[in-house]
Nucleic acid binder design. Structure first.
Lengths: 343, 343
DNA sequence: TTGTATGCGTTATCAC
DNA sequence: GTGATAACGCATACAA
């Protein structure tokens, strides 16, 4: 009784296995009477078709995979939820895989795609520069990059992407601080140079905004990213602490993410200073926590739900033969309680 | 060139498929020369064995699944990370599946287990009362429940579990508030009655602490859970707002989770009151964000990493034939800045 | 040490 | 309408 197979069901129903298969997959004609009988047996014995055999036989599966570079990133939470629901509602099943620091997400994806017979995949997070054309070709199934793209290294017909313009949004956030009268503006957290990430792009926007406004870039105001560091609250806290020590005249900080911003905010408050009284803080992402922090944090809000929906929609289209697309969404600066106008 | 199979590799290497299989699986004897040749061909063509075929053939797979009821719950983040690493380090691969509100996690698990040929699974979250003995029997593979167990409805040899004593910890948290001099203590958030969740157990602890200390239970101090509500910051915020309106004399609140506690804290602060000056707040879980909130929130800290490690270790043991176990971990009350002694 | 043949549970193509 | 039967890609007992 442990594991029934289609043969057992056929025998118990007194029909051939082809008929059982027809009933299960609703393909071809089966008389109402036999159908009912087979269904009864299936239910009675709790028979579930073996997916490995099915995948082996079928070219097409209905498995979509979501690869997430750091699944614990709160910003990804809402997106994962949305993708999950959207994928399910379209009748596919979703496999979620966390990609750790040291793995190349595309290599991983290629391997998993063959092993698990995926029909499509979404890659969330990671860096812009990890992708090569050869890998996309080897992948051979529809792929959507979410929050990053390949920055022109790869023929754009090979994949779709949904991103924001990180450089531009970094620029805008910094400009907003400048317009509020700030000149000594810290930046949390700059990645190592040789890789292109949203982080680095936002940093470039920060630099551009400073330069366009005649403010000298000061390395002391920039908290360096550590290799293989988890970008948690604590990182933000510690980086901000050291930034404040080095720059007593700093009046504002632009954090690469809301998580870092919250850690940074705590460092400010723990040192006895006020937000935004003494130091203004702006984050990035627009996670719910930023809204419920005390004080409510200004942030560059990314339309996470919309982005997730677009990603699934794009993937679905590609699976039906539609062309790839590269969508760039707009962010919006949420002006709340953590940035003060300098007089 | 698209998808190679073992036959192609055999042909290209000038050997039989059995030899290729031996090379791949490192089973049986293969001469160093042939091994090298086969390996070269495999690498050249980027051959990856088809896992469906392998699973079909093999009784044993190395797929462990993690089913998470609400993957976006921040408390689960650290656990997911830990489990991921631990599973990988033991040479298994981890599939993560989000279980939504309306799905029965065990039904889902049974179905997935057969479809994907799992060798073990961990279920995180959910309710105590969703499990029946029949389902565990049908499942037929080692299963560890994390953060819940089946509360005696099911023969304990059928599964392992790692939990805390929710009732006791709820009791302790409440008692702590009472010892700090509070009498009008709110509770956020009571689930619907007919299901047993950690939430309900903590609520029972709350009730017991009140009764043992001669404090009358007042329904107005208890924020009811809504059916199918996502327990987010906003829920906590709104529930707290209504609690404060109904109870101007309330001096403390015990929230079922840190996320709710943060939402509640924001509601307190937004109304112009102080924490802990006017209202004391204690949460539950010990997520990182509670530590970085302003003010730092008192909470009942669950040893998430330790619990996750235990779960994987238990599962691994069961897969090797060891007996099931039911581990109950200790929590610890983190006394920080959000609870004040009433004079 | 290596190759051949069989079967794992399905689906799909045939005949019936 | 229905039932044999040939793949699908792989691991393995068995033969060489």
């Amino acid at each position: 009784m442990a594991n029934m197979n289609i043969k057992d069901i056929a025998k118990l129903s007194g029909v051939g296995i082809a008929t059982v298969s027809r009933v299960i997959n609703q393909t071809g004609y089966v008389s109402e009477k036999t159908r009912k009988k087979v269904l009864d047996v299936i239910n009675e014995y709790n028979y579930i078709p073996n997916n490995s055999a099915r995948n082996l036989k079928l070219t097409q599966s209905d498995n979509i995979a979501l690869f997430v570079k750091y699944i614990t990133n709160p910003f990804f939470g809402k997106m994962i939820d949305t993708i999950q629901q959207e994928v399910a509602s379209r009748g596919y099943s979703l496999l979620i895989q966390n990609v750790d620091e040291n793995s190349d997400e595309l290599d991983f994806a290629i391997s998993e795609s063959m092993q698990r017979n995926l029909c499509g995949l979404i890659i969330m997070g990671g860096s812009y520069s990890a992708y090569t054309e050869a890998k996309f070709r080897q992948l051979g199934i529809p792929c959507v990059l979410l929050t990053v793209n390949s920055e022109g290294n790869v023929d754009p017909v090979l994949y779709s992407s949904v991103t924001i313009n990180d450089e531009l949004e970094g620029y805008r956030a910094t400009k907003y601080l400048i317009e509020m009268g700030h000149r000594r503006i810290g930046f949390l957290y700059k990645d190592i140079e040789n890789v292109v990430t949203p982080n680095i792009l936002r940093y470039r926007g920060y630099i551009r905004a400073l330069e366009e406004n005649g403010i000298a870039v000061d390395e002391r105001l920039i908290a360096p990213g550590l290799p293989s560091v988890s970008m948690g609250f604590r990182s933000g806290f510690q980086a901000m602490k050291s930034l404040m020590q080095k720059n007593p005249d700093m009046t504002a900080v632009f954090a690469f993410s809301d998580v870092l911003a919250i850690g940074a905010a705590k460092a400010v408050l723990a040192s006895g200073k006020q937000i935004p009284g003494d130091i203004s803080v702006i984050g990035f992402d627009g996670i719910e926590m930023a809204e419920f922090y005390n004080p409510t944090l200004d942030t560059v809000y990314q339309p996470a739900t919309e982005m997730a929906l677009s990603a699934v929609s794009l993937l679905h289209g590609m699976m039906r033969g539609e062309k790839t697309q590269h969508i760039v969404c707009d962010s919006v600066i949420m002006k709340r309680g953590s940035v003060k106008m300098m007089r």
